[in-house]
Structure formats: C-alpha cells, structure tokens
Amino acid sequence: MTVTLAELARRFQAKVQGDEGVIIEGVASLQTAGPRDIAYVSDRKYLPQLVDTKAGAVILAEADITRYAGSALIVANPHLCFAQVADLLHPTPGFTPGVHPTAVVSPAAKVAVTAWIGPHSVVEAGAMIGEGAYIGPGCHIGAKASIGEKTRLMAHVVIGERCVIGNKCLFKPGAVIGSEGFGFAKDGERWQKVPQIGRVLIGNEVEVGANTTIDRGSLGDTVIGDGVKLDNLIQIAHNVRIGENTAMAACSGIAGSAVVGKRCTIGGQAGINGHIELADDVHITACSLVTSSITKPGVYSSSIKAEPAEKWRRNAARLYHLDEVVRRLAKLEERLQQHSEEQKN
C-alpha cells in the first residue's frame, strides 16, 4: 500500500511538518529507513539519530519538532501513531473461506461459511467456528468449544473442549488454551489426580503469544478479560482471572486462583503467587515475585540485580546473620533510649 504524508495526517489526526506529498510505502527504524519509509521517535534519547536518518518522514511529538528539519507527522503519542501507520501499511493477509481437504471437521460441528479451516486441523463435535474466523494449519478445536468472529488461530493452536473464545482474538503458534490445570491431592507418598472440569473463557480482542498456556479451571472457569495481551511463553494456571486490557510480558506466570485487575502490566519473568489479588492499574517490574495481595495502584518491584559473584557470595553469607544483627541493633536502640532518658533526668 502507498499513501502520502497528508493522507496519514488525515487518518490519524496529525499535523504535517514539511512536504505533505511525501510518498510512504513502509515503516522502519531511524537507522534503516529509506526515502519511502516512515520512522518514529518516542524516547528522547533517540533524538540524536534524527541527524543521520534517511527516512522519508518521521513521527514526532510536538516538543521535538525543532530537532528535525525534514518532513514529519506531529502527534501526541508517536509510538501509538507508528503502530497505527504500520497496521495500515502492513494489514493482516486475507484468506479464501472454506475447509482444506486434509482438515477433519465433525459433521456435528458448526462452521460459518466465511471461516477457513486449514490443513490437518481438527474440529470436534459440537464446536462452533464464527464468521470470518481463521483456523490455521494443524490446529485442534475441542468438542463444544466456541471460536468468535474474525478470530485467528495461527499454526498448531489447541483450544480445549467447551472453552469459549471471543471475537477478533489472535492466537500465535503453539498456544494451548484449556489444558488441564496442575491439580493433585496428596495420598500418603503418592499423588491423586484431581479432574479439572472447568473451562477457559476469553474475551474479545485478546492476543495470546506463541507457546503460551492457559489452563482450564478446576471447578469454575479461568477468565481472560477483553483486550488482554499475553506475550510468548506465559503460564496462566487454573481459575486465574485477568482484568480487561492487562498486558503480560514473556516468561511470566500466574499461579492458581490469583486475580489480576484491569490495565495492569506484568514484566518479563515475573511471578504471581496463587490465591492473591492485584488491584487495577498495578504494574509489576520484570523478574519480580509477588507473594501477597496488592490493594493499591502503583509500580511494584522485588528484584535483586546481578552483582559480581564474589560480592554476591559475601552478601548472601551476611543474610544468614541478619536476624542476629537486627536483635543487636534493637538492644542498642533500647540502651540509647535509656541513656537519653537518664540524661534528661
């Protein structure tokens, strides 16, 4: 697709600096952009790169327009505008509806005539595939599962039985929705499996990354709200509830029955303990471990940064004596308090 800078400004409520007739065909970084590409700056530390960019145009905030003499789109949120332009210029490929000859679709399944069932996919009895849905190669849709309108499953996605997927969702390769949760009861020295008989309910416009797993509920349901975005390699355990428009980065995980509020962000490799709650608008930084409920919005961290091994070993050894040090300090404070009172008398 080819557009002019003026057309982009009209579509995305931007102002134009420079030549409105600049032709834009693609998006790129400041370093790699050519004369028919548009780049962006959302972090001011990258402003010095504007001097050498070959981009046909750049998306900038109004506060930064004096740093660039070339053609530009001026917007309040350059990163958002860049995403919108990229989506316009690189739309999701279309498809021809139908069922591939190698797909296996139960006669008891209901598949919309505008949907596509790809090669070697399986759709079991009672499943419902909505209008405009795309089921990619090697996917498995369990019995009585429901896939909403315009939802896309890329390759080898598994949707378990009775799970419900909303409209306009995207599931990347290898995602598994509705696998059995990790439920076992102790029986002496062995473990007795606890059947996981709930479902996974996923709202509209949810994105699930590659090889991410969302377990079905043990008795109730695991619930993922509208607009949630999950990165690759995430584990969501049984009966977890995630509020609308929350985003989680790669390799993070949530243990069973935890509740995460709306508009939260969970950094990469962060862990959230089971049976706790996070309020709306809570932001957990990368590699943090959350072991108790958080009741107020804000940014929370629990990471310990890497240190040279010799220094870390010394500090770790001192941690073993921390209780003793605290007791000694308390005694010293008590003595100082007594001494201060004696001096006053």
Score class of each variant (00 low, 15 high):
Ala103Gly: 01
Ala103Trp: 00
Val104His: 04
Val104Arg: 04
Val105Gly: 00
Ser106Phe: 00
Pro107Arg: 02
Pro107Gly: 03
Ala108Tyr: 08
Ala108His: 12
Ala109Val: 01
Ala109Glu: 02
Lys110Asn: 10
Ala112Gln: 09
Val113Pro: 15
Ala115His: 03
Trp116Val: 15
Ile117Asn: 01
Ile117Cys: 02
Gly118Tyr: 03
Pro119Leu: 02
His120Thr: 15
Ser121Asp: 01
Ser121Ile: 01
Ser121Phe: 00
Val123Ala: 00
Val123Asn: 00
Glu124Arg: 01
Glu124Pro: 05
Glu124Gln: 09
Gly126Asp: 02
Ala127Thr: 01
Met128Gln: 15
Met128Pro: 14
Gly130Arg: 10
Gly130Ile: 08
Glu131Met: 12
Gly132Ala: 07
Gly132Phe: 06
Gly132Thr: 14
Ala133Ile: 12
Ala133Gly: 08
Tyr134Ala: 13
Ile135Gly: 05
Ile135Trp: 06
Gly136Thr: 07
Pro137Asn: 11
Pro137Lys: 14
Pro137Ala: 12
His140Asp: 05
Ile141Ser: 00
Ile141Leu: 01
Gly142Gln: 03
Gly142Ser: 03
Gly142Met: 02
Ala143Gly: 09
Lys144Gln: 11
Ala145Ser: 10
Ala145Arg: 04
Ala145Trp: 04
Ala145Phe: 05
Ala145Tyr: 04
Ser146Asp: 11
Ser146Thr: 15
Ser146Asn: 13
Ile147Asp: 03
Gly148Met: 11
Gly148Cys: 07
Gly148Val: 10
Lys150Ala: 08
Lys150Met: 09
Thr151Tyr: 05
Thr151Cys: 06
Met154Thr: 15
Ala155Val: 10
His156Thr: 15
Val157Phe: 12
Ile159Thr: 03
Ile159Glu: 02
Gly160Gln: 04
Gly160Glu: 04
Glu161Lys: 11
Arg162Tyr: 13
Arg162Val: 12
Gly166Met: 08
Asn167Ser: 09
Lys168Asn: 14
Lys168His: 13
Lys168Glu: 14
Lys168Gly: 10
Cys169Asn: 07
Cys169Gln: 06
Cys169Tyr: 06
Leu170Pro: 15
Lys172Gly: 02
Lys172Val: 09
Lys172His: 14
Pro173Trp: 08
Pro173Gln: 08
Pro173Leu: 04
Pro173Ile: 10
Ala175Asn: 13
Val176Lys: 09
Gly178Arg: 04
Ser179Tyr: 08
Glu180Arg: 12
Gly181Cys: 03
Phe182Asp: 08
Phe182Gly: 06
Gly183Phe: 02
Gly183Lys: 07
Phe184Cys: 12
Phe184Thr: 14
Ala185Thr: 05
Ala185Cys: 02
Lys186Phe: 05
